[in-house]
């Protein structure tokens, strides 16, 4: 069971209050009509799937209802931090080979 810190509520709450919404920091192409099939397919379907450090979008469905980001290890399940939309997160240690 994850204990997740919601950066908007400022509280540590149980995983059940939240829902994972996939990889974080995916920018919609500014001009979709100008995209090639490859670029558009990559935007729609291709997600990073690392065994290790990962930045994810979560939503506090049973709380404030806001989306925010979590930096988490997908193998050990350790949560390194949670931060608001628009903020950046850098890993404290130098193992960020997985960073986008």
């Amino acid at each position: 069971m994850f204990l997740i810190h919601c950066p908007y509520c400022g509280e540590d709450r149980e995983e059940e209050e939240f829902h994972a919404a996939g990889e974080a920091h995916i920018a919609r192409p500014l001009d979709p009509d100008a995209c090639s099939d490859e670029e558009w397919g990559n935007y729609l379907y291709f997600r990073r799937n690392p065994r290790g450090l990962h930045r994810e979008l979560w939503v506090h469905v049973a709380g404030c209802g806001k989306y925010f980001n979590i930096a988490r290890d997908t193998a050990s399940y350790q949560i390194h931090g949670s931060y608001r939309i628009g903020e950046r997160f850098t890993w404290s240690d130098a193992e960020d080979s997985a960073a986008p």
């Binding site: 994850f2 995983e15 059940e16 829902h19 994972a20 690392p50 990962h54 994810e56 997908t74």
Partner: peptide, 14 residues
């Protein structure tokens, strides 16, 4: 399935 990406070969209690 659990909604998050994970390689832990274990699932969550909820």
């Amino acid at each position: 399935i659990d909604s998050y990406v994970g390689y832990g070969q274990r699932g969550s209690y909820p």
